[in-house]
Amino acid sequence: MAGDPLQEVVVTTKLDRVLGWARKYSLFQYPFVTACCGMEFMATSGSHYDTDRFGAAFPRFSPRQADLLMVVGTITHKQAPILKRVYDQMCEPKWVVAFGVCATSGGFYQNYGSVPGIDCFLPVDMYIPGCPPRPETVIDALLKLQDRIQNQRQALL
């Protein structure tokens, strides 16, 4: 179709891809910060490492406005119903990141108080190892999550 004037001004793509592109660069985080990992989370969000570069640093302190739940720190059995409620209030599509070993597996806590990993009651999309994780690890996880969002099937609810 040489000479088609539309080719000069129109880009074609798939709906899934364009939605994925939009979603991965507009992640609104809900930081559920309970422990020392929070310091590393702040360091990563701060200007030095600056997750804003990746379009994933905008914190919303209401779960109803967020689509990325960052669980940063140890979750106790007392805290678990609260976290579950926060998750339930978030609108689809939503993703969950377990930040640090405590959120991932309970870490070195194995006792009456701690949940051995938030995947005991939440679906987790990305686990970040480390006690606490380095900012590079966090950014790596963020990029992997964005990659996943880009390539997933975009459910239209």
Binding site: S114, V115, C120
Partner: peptide
């Protein structure tokens, strides 16, 4: 442990 909500792979 004494969870308040149902836990998988407890």
């Amino acid at each position: 442990s004494q969870p308040l909500i149902p836990m998988r792979n407890a």
